[in-house]
């Protein structure tokens, strides 16, 4: 039988000390280099931002689940087209949030969802909330902060200067060349808003997932072009 206890020799003691050193080296490697999902955060994430159990439980298959939900969401809208109700808006937001939590890198989904919320449902805050879901995972993604600024300028009049200023500061912190100054952004908002909204709607129309969504977008575009906004 192996493992009978006996007195340790000096050589064995040294060998064990060697093991301790070896363990210390390995532990320091993990503690020093292991990437933590928390250390990248620019600001603390509020608890309401975290949702659901799907992401941890779906293991390595979370992106496949995201595609599945994307198809389900499109099919639901095709079968039960809901137009402009607050419930429809919340359902759309929840579906998009779930998809982006499962696959935060799914940029076509993010752009479609965020633009749809701002253009069709006229809710810039929900649109920003959707972008924030991805920013929780990729806080240094400057394009998304620029996207938020563009949404604010394009869909809210007057845009909130404090918020834009705050995002411009984040871009500065990331050493990202800021596209506009605050006062310029406010001027653009007054002059270009309608044109940007039309451009977004045309993009949505080209990328619509279902014929039901296409009809909703066409109606909104028609309203905007004939200068009769429907809210």
């Amino acid at each position: 039988m192996a493992g009978v206890l006996r007195k340790r020799t000096g050589r064995e003691f040294l060998s064990q000390a060697n093991h301790l050193l070896y363990a210390a080296l390995v532990i320091s490697f993990f503690v020093y280099f292991a990437p933590s999902p928390l250390e990248n955060s620019i600001e603390p994430v509020v608890s309401a931002d975290y949702i659901g159990h799907e992401r941890p439980l779906s293991g390595a298959f979370h992106t496949l689940l995201a595609d599945h939900y994307w198809l389900l969401s499109a099919r639901r809208l095709e079968q039960h087209p809901e137009q402009g109700t607050p419930v429809a808006k919340q359902n759309f937001f929840k579906e998009m949030k779930r998809i982006l939590t499962l696959d935060p890198g799914f940029t076509p989904g993010l752009h479609y969802g965020a633009t749809y919320l701002a253009s069709i449902y006229r809710d810039v805050d929900l649109s920003h909330a959707l972008v924030d879901v991805v920013l929780d995972y990729y806080p240094y993604w400057a394009d998304l902060i620029i996207f938020k600024i563009t949404q604010e300028i394009s869909y809210r009049y007057p845009p909130r200067p404090a918020l834009i200023d705050q995002w411009l500061k984040v871009l500065d912190d990331l050493s990202y060349p800021t596209p506009v100054r605050l006062n310029e952004a406010l001027v653009y908002a007054r002059e270009q808003q309608a044109a940007w909204q039309q451009k977004d709607l045309r993009w949505l129309l080209n990328n619509a997932r279902t014929s039901a969504e296409k009809q909703i977008i066409q109606k909104r575009l028609h309203d905007l072009e004939s200068d009769r906004p429907s809210r």
């Binding site: 999902p37 975290y50 941890p56």
Partner: peptide, 10 residues
């Protein structure tokens, strides 16, 4: 990673 995010928040 999700568990770490969750516990950090809640």
């Amino acid at each position: 990673d999700e568990l770490l995010l969750l516990t950090d928040q809640q």
